[in-house]
Design a protein around this nucleic acid. Structure first.
Length: 574
RNA sequence: CGGGAUGUAGCGCAGCUUGGUAGCGCGCCACGUUCGGGACGUGGAGGCCGGGGGUUCAAGUCCCCCCAUCCCGACCA
C-alpha cells in the first residue's frame, strides 16, 4: 500500500518551465521523475513503480521465448570496443573516461561486443545453441541534443537481448520469436504501435524492423500505404522503379543559358519561366548536392522537389565516411561551382555520381553548368552526363506511390520504442565466434540484437495516455490500480486506510491519500494528475455508508456501498 | 557545431528601460478556523539576483568575458 502521507511525492501545481512535451511536463509535475542534468533523470518512487511494472512485463515475455536474464557492467574497458571499431565509430556519442592508471574506459551505449565474447568464452558446441540472453540495464549515449525529458536521455534504461545461432534459419526463428514477444509486450503495455521496415543498408541486407509509437512529438517519420499493409521508416522506403523511358525519344540538344541571380532551385524555376519561355516546376530541375566520401568529392542527384536524406546517404556509401562539401572544398576543387553544380563532365575528374532512381537514363533535366551564373537545359542522362550508381537517398513525400501497390503513401511522426535486427555474422566475424558443428568442423555463429527502451516506453505511455487533467495510466503499468481519496473531517481517513488494506489483500495495488488537512480540491486534482486508473472517493457520503468509484479515463462515477467496494473494484478490473 | 531565448527563494515569475534597503503567487513551518473541486486568518523560515572582471560613492539593474539551461536547425547549393 502506498500512503501519500509518507510517500516521497511533491506534485507541482504549475508546469515546469523547461518542459515542452506532455510526457515530460506531466511526469515532472506528478513527481515521477526529477532532472539532474540534460538527459539525466532520477526515478522517484512512483516513477520507479512504473518502470518496475514495465520491466516485469518485458521479463515475463522474454523468458517465455527462452530468454535468460543477465546483467552486464555499464563501465567497460576500451579494448573490446576498439576491436569492433566502435571506440572510433561511435564518435562523440560515446561517454569516455579514464581510471586512476590512465586506462581508457567507456560507459556502454549497447553491448553486442561483450555478449559475443561471453558466448565465445562459454559455448563451444552447436549443442549450446540456440541461445537468447537479455538484460535490463542503463545505457549511456552522449546525445548531441537530449530532449523531451526521458524520451531522449543520455542515460536511459534499455532491455537489450541477443540471439545466437549456427544457421540462418535459426536466426530467422529467433527473430520471429522476438517479433512475437514484442507484439505481446506492447499489447500488454497498452501502447499504440506499428511495425515498420527499418533501414538495413549498412549491415548488408539483414532484416530489421522497428516498433514505432505514433506521436506528434516523435522524432521518426514513417510511411504507411493508404490501401495495402506496407509500412516503413522513411529511411527504409524503396522508391518504386520509375516508368520506363522510351530509348528512341528525341531530345533537343543541350543548351547553356545565362541565369544571373538564380542559384538554388526556386530562383532557377522563376528565372527559366520568366526569361526563357520554359514551363518548369522544381520537379523538372536536378538538385546536385556535393559531399565528400573519405575526403573525395561525390555528387548526389535528386529531382529538385526532393531533399537528400543524409542518414540514408551515409548508410548507402558506408563504410566510407560522409562529410559535407564546405566552402574550402569548393575553393580546393574549382570544377564544382557553388550554386551552379552539375554532374556534366565529372567523370573526367574522378567524381562519383550517385542518383535517385527517378533520375533514370534517358530523362531530361535542367541543371547547373559548373560556371558562375549559368545553367543548362535539356541535359539528358546517359547522353550528356553519366550516373555511376543509383541509390535510395531522396526524402519521401506525402502521396508518393507505395512501392508495393502504387497507392499514395501517408506520412506520420512516431517514437521508436523497439528495434529488432538480424545482425548476421558481423560481430561473430570480428571476434571469431565459432562453435563446433555436428560435422566436427567450426561453424561461424550468426546473431540477432533486439532492443526496447524501457524508460522511453514509460514516456511514450504518458505521451499517448493523458488528458487535460493529467496522466491516465493503463492498469498494467500504473503505480497502483486504485487511488483512494479520503476527504472530510470525520473518520474518512480510517475508512480509506481500511479499504486500501482490503484491496491490497485481494492483490490489488492501492495508493491512498491519507494526508490530513488537505482540502478536497487538492486531493482530487492530485488524483487526476497522478493518473491511477480507478479513483475511490471516501467523503461526505460515508455518513450514508457510501463511497464513489470513478474511472479515471472515462470520468464515469458510480456510488457504491462501503461494504461492497472491494467486490466492485474486483469486478471493474476484471 | 550554428541560430534564438532564458538564468532572481523548493516551483512559477516580476523588478533591469531610468543604478539607491530583494519582491509577488504557490509551496514550506506554527497556531486557529475550514473540509466534495487547487479554502482562510495571524505569525514565521527561506536569496552570493548563474560565475568572474569592470564602471560608480553605490550594481539584480550599466559594460566586458565566461558558464549553464531550454527551443529550433543540424547540409538543401
Amino acid at each position: 500500500m502506498l500512503r501519500l502521507s509518507t510517500l516521497l511525492l511533491k506534485t507541482l501545481r504549475e508546469d515546469p518551465a523547461d518542459a515542452e512535451v506532455p510526457s515530460h511536463r506531466l511526469l515532472v509535475r506528478g513527481g515521477y521523475i526529477r532532472r539532474w542534468a540534460p538527459g539525466v533523470y532520477s526515478l522517484l518512487p512512483l516513477g520507479q513503480a512504473v518502470v518496475d511494472n514495465i520491466s516485469k512485463v518485458i521479463i515475463e515475455e522474454m523468458k517465455a521465448i527462452g530468454g535468460q536474464q543477465v546483467t552486464f557492467p555499464a563501465l567497460l574497458p576500451r579494448e573490446y570496443y576498439e576491436a569492433s571499431g566502435r571506440w572510433t565509430e561511435y564518435g562523440d556519442t560515446l561517454f569516455r573516461l579514464k581510471d586512476r592508471r590512465n586506462n581508457d574506459f567507456l560507459l556502454g551505449p549497447t553491448h553486442e561486443e561483450l555478449f559475443t565474447l561471453l558466448v565465445k568464452d562459454l559455448c563451444s558446441s552447436y549443442k549450446d545453441l540456440p541461445l537468447i540472453l537479455f538484460q535490463i540495464q542503463a545505457k549511456y549515449r552522449d546525445e548531441a541534443r537530449p530532449r523531451s525529458g526521458i524520451l531522449r536521455g543520455r542515460e536511459f534504461l534499455m532491455k537489450d537481448s541477443y540471439s545466437f545461432d549456427v544457421t540462418n534459419e535459426g536466426l530467422a526463428a529467433n527473430y520471429a520469436l522476438h517479433r512475437n514477444a514484442y507484439v505481446h509486450i506492447f499489447e500488454r503495455l497498452g501502447i499504440d504501435y506499428r511495425i515498420v521496415s527499418a533501414m538495413s543498408g549498412a549491415m548488408g541486407g539483414s532484416q530489421s524492423e522497428e516498433f514505432l509509437a505514433p506521436s506528434p512529438v516523435g522524432e521518426d517519420t514513417f510511411v504507411t500505404c493508404t490501401s495495402c499493409d506496407y509500412a516503413a521508416n522513411v529511411e527504409a522506403v524503396q522508391v518504386a522503379p520509375p516508368a520506363p523511358v522510351d530509348p528512341g525519344a528525341e531530345h533537343p540538344p543541350m543548351r547553356k543559358l545565362h541565369t544571373p541571380d538564380a542559384p538554388g532551385i526556386a530562383a532557377l524555376v522563376a528565372h527559366l519561366n520568366d526569361h526563357h519561355q520554359r514551363s518548369v516546376t522544381s520537379k523538372d530541375l536536378l538538385k546536385n548536392i556535393a559531399f565528400k566520401a573519405d575526403g573525395k568529392p561525390i555528387l548526389v542527384l535528386v529531382p529538385g522537389d526532393r531533399e537528400v536524406d543524409a542518414e540514408r546517404l551515409a548508410a548507402a556509401i558506408a563504410p566510407a565516411k560522409l562529410d559535407l562539401f564546405e566552402e574550402e572544398d569548393f575553393a580546393a576543387f574549382p570544377h564544382l561551382v557553388k550554386g551552379y553544380i552539375s554532374a556534366i563532365g565529372m567523370a573526367a575528374y574522378d567524381v562519383t555520381v550517385y542518383a535517385d532512381p527517378r533520375v533514370a537514363a534517358g530523362t531530361s533535366w535542367a541543371t547547373g553548368a559548373n560556371e558562375f551564373e549559368h545553367h543548362v537545359v535539356d541535359a539528358v542522362v546517359g547522353r550528356d552526363f553519366v550516373v555511376d550508381h543509383y541509390i535510395e537517398v531522396a526524402t519521401v513525400a506525402q502521396g508518393d506511390p507505395c512501392p508495393r501497390c502504387g497507392s499514395p503513401l501517408a506520412l506520420d511522426r512516431a517514437i521508436e520504442i523497439g528495434h529488432i535486427f538480424q545482425l548476421g555474422r558481423k560481430y561473430a566475424d570480428t571476434f571469431s565466434l565459432d562453435v563446433l558443428g555436428p560435422d566436427g568442423k567450426p561453424a561461424r555463429v550468426t546473431m540477432g540484437s533486439y532492443g526496447i527502451g524501457v524508460t522511453r516506453a514509460m514516456a511514450v505511455i504518458a505521451e499517448q495516455m493523458h488528458d487535460g487533467l493529467g496522466l491516465v495510466w493503463p492498469e498494467q503499468v500504473a503505480p497502483a490500480k486504485v487511488h483512494v481519496v479520503a476527504t472530510g473531517k470525520e473518520n474518512q481517513i480510517e475508512v480509506a486506510l481500511d479499504l486500501a488494506a482490503q484491496l491490497e489483500g485481494k492483490g490489488i495495488t492501492t495508493l491512498v491519500d491519507d494526508r490530513p488537512g488537505f482540502s478536497p480540491g487538492v486531493k482530487f486534482k492530485d488524483a487526476e494528475l497522478l493518473g491511477m486508473p480507478w479513483i475511490v472517493v471516501v467523503g461526505k457520503n460515508l455518513a450514508d455508508g457510501m463511497v464513489e468509484l470513478r474511472n479515471r479515463r472515462t470520468g464515469e462515477a458510480t456510488a457504491v456501498a462501503v461494504t461492497g467496494l472491494v467486490e466492485a473494484v474486483v469486478g471493474a478490473l476484471a
